[in-house]
Nucleic acid binder design. Sequence first.
DNA 1: CCATAGGTAAACAGATCAGTTTACATTGTC
DNA 2: GACAATGTAAACTGATCTGTTTACCTATGG
Lengths: 188, 188
Amino acid sequence: MADTATPTKKQEIIAQAYDAFYNGGFHATGIDTVMANSGISKRTLYKYFPSKEDLIEAVLEQYGEDTDALLFTPALARSDDPRAQIAALFDVRREIMEKTACRGCLAMKAGQEYIGKHAGIAAHGREASVYLEGRFIELCEKAGLANPRETGRQIGLLFQGAALTAQMQQDPSTFDVARKAADILLAV
Amino acid sequence: MADTATPTKKQEIIAQAYDAFYNGGFHATGIDTVMANSGISKRTLYKYFPSKEDLIEAVLEQYGEDTDALLFTPALARSDDPRAQIAALFDVRREIMEKTACRGCLAMKAGQEYIGKHAGIAAHGREASVYLEGRFIELCEKAGLANPRETGRQIGLLFQGAALTAQMQQDPSTFDVARKAADILLAV
DNA sequence: CCATAGGTAAACAGATCAGTTTACATTGTC
DNA sequence: GACAATGTAAACTGATCTGTTTACCTATGG
């Protein structure tokens, strides 16, 4: 009846694979590991996803939706002022890291692992990067900046650098440092 | 006689592994691939490096030295002014990308792949991140900035974000965007 | 000329990988 | 109760992985 009430088997598989790949990496995590203690048999998995790469792409699409739901939507809801919304993106990103541990951006991790190997997966990394910049550019436009395209890209670089560095150094305060830099760029 | 004249077999192995891991990733690249068309037998390889992880650590140490020789040394040589040196780091990084193709930071790539799996390798990623920030902080101190520690970290985030984004989007001009942002942060 | 050191080449072991197949259990429907 | 759909469980294939071992080659030095 309801069509989003109970999770589809397909969604269940994606959710399990999501965690497994996030924690273990893509190449390093086998299909067997994805299924371990998850109540999903290999036959069912391959029914929905003909190959590991297909599964990875589905996971990355889910990740994109999650990023909207967990990062952009809550951050933009915190204020109506685009400058404050930009700052909120750094804050929410920090909170996500503090809640869900060390992990960086899954799509870019995938992009790095599959660059030159699997076009579809690598494209997800590129698109995630472009999408993030686009959101910042959009906010810079709303803020009425002189050069929203450049400033938006710059803030995007800060954000991506912060996500990577925070993960490497296991230090969520990195996002605060980045937010202050974004404030300076917005003030010019 | 000379002790750096002819490359040691050990150095030869590292150089071959360096390229193989850079192009293929760590988990995805097998020992067999490292040796393919390289004139190095498996027996010799395992004589010098008892495990793949040992080899990876040696490669990362070499990568650190290369980064000094190919990035920091030439960039710092371009000027005596610390602000200009910071700008030069972005320029040289762009030139490196244009010369040697798409590749991002090997140490952080390794850190991402081995986080929670191999402490020694993961530590190289963390150290590379900290080292980079340290170099920028040092230059910010020389430039007489009010808060060199914070500004140095911020510029480090820009640099790391630019390296990742430039790789993802295959766009070397990303480093120019980052350099302009660094200029703004330095002018405050 | 021979011994030793250091190398290549390649077979091999055991684990694990992606993906297929066979067999069986469960469930809802007619 | 029969049937079809959907699932689990697990054996299996063939490739590939890390790492070991056996056998042979080649240079150098006494």
